[in-house]
Design a protein around this nucleic acid. Structure first.
Lengths: 146, 146
DNA sequence: ATGGTTGCAAACACTTTGCACATGA
DNA sequence: TCATGTGCAAAGTGTTTGCAACCAT
């Protein structure tokens, strides 16, 4: 299995997906690669601006839809009414979202695969993807709250 | 522990939550009680119309925010940009969402509580709520797709 | 050269908000 | 009666789309 977007030859990797290596796409992939948490379009726009790569929100939305369709990124929702994106190459893990300070940690996936097995057996339902997020209070905030 | 909205004395139960029993609220609670899957505001509006209970979308949105805040319902997201609501009294379970026909099944929660224990131990993160949904192909659709 | 990509503006869908009026307890 | 709830209209946010111009290959 190939791990994409790990060797920083983004240009080649985009081409492997049949995508032209435009400045905006290169910058977005780089941003996602270094992002510590799933990014929304707003944060992507900010990064592009900071990098002096100009791109329209419409372009970014189109790009992200494209990336999701091609399996470059996955879409995640923490809050309602806003999509976040994460590189699929970052592997399968879930998020701990602190409702107080907004910090996001990752937890590795331990039990979901076997749960999906059970679902196949008991429901004849073929799971293709899942979403699992935990909301609550991070270490620091749960101390403060007492 | 009390199970709310199970004995169909919605009026009393709303009052227990400190809410006035208005026609719209009574109808919405009744709808959610009988709903087989988490309802979006659109489907609620349809039901109200059919029941000849007139209510503005703004009212329903306000109502649902209120219900969530008071722990009557929880908010769920399947698709982006649209919230769905389910009575909390329906218990903890997750959903199997067929990406082909849209059918939604429920699966009981088996492993998440212990996962939350581990998270507390290993990350010092206090989980207050979680979201877990599975997307894929239901029995019928996975047969058709072959 | 040409098809994939983009910017722009407009349109959409969902949701929230302010305010005056209405209604349940 | 009076706080709570509601309708209406307007505004806010995130996202999509049509189309002409543009640019990577």
């Amino acid at each position: 299995m190939v791990t994409f977007f790990k060797q920083h030859n983004y240009k080649e990797e985009l081409k492997d997906f049949g995508l032209k290596a435009t400045p905006a796409r290169l910058a977005v992939v780089e941003f996602l690669e270094n992002a510590k948490k799933p990014a929304d379009v707003n944060s992507i726009m900010d990064y592009l601006q900071q990098k002096r790569v100009n791109a329209d929100p419409a372009t970014v939305f189109r790009m992200m839809n494209d990336f999701v369709k091609r399996g470059i990124t996955k879409q995640i929702q923490f809050e309602t009414g806003k999509a976040r994106y994460e590189l699929l190459s970052k592997g399968d893990h879930h998020h701990l979202i602190c409702e107080n300070c907004g910090k996001i940690e990752a937890v590795s996936d331990t039990v979901i695969p076997q749960m999906e097995e059970e679902i196949k057996k008991e429901h004849n339902f073929l799971v293709k993807r899942h979403s699992l997020e935990f909301f609550g209070l991070c270490k620091d905030c749960s101390l403060k709250k007492n």
